[in-house]
Amino acid sequence: MHEMALMAGVFDIIKQYTTDLEESRVTKVTLVVGEMTNAVPEALQSAFAVYSAGTVVEGAELLIREIPLTAECMSCGWAGKTEKHLFICPQCSSLGLELKTGRELYLESLEVE
């Protein structure tokens, strides 16, 4: 349910980049969302539709690039995808896994024309 608040953050950033682009329209917004964030893509899409209405972003495509949860084992060096958010090494059963990707939550780019 906090996707509305997240989208408010997205539009705050978009506004900073589009205030001096009066004649232009944003056609595509790319977000990067890690697997281990509590942001649900479908809810982000709904929030995007609400926030873009009546702005230079209206009608733009929201592309959500999802990043899998990956980790590296500090004991045996194993690296790979972490299943079910369990930070246990599938190779040596160590609990010393370091998170590598999956916590991303950022606005990557805008396509403007």
């Binding site: 950022y106 606005l107 403007v112």
Partner: peptide
């Protein structure tokens, strides 16, 4: 035109 941003949503 593509504008690179890379700014955290939060």
């Amino acid at each position: 035109m593509e504008i690179k941003i890379n700014t955290g949503i939060l």
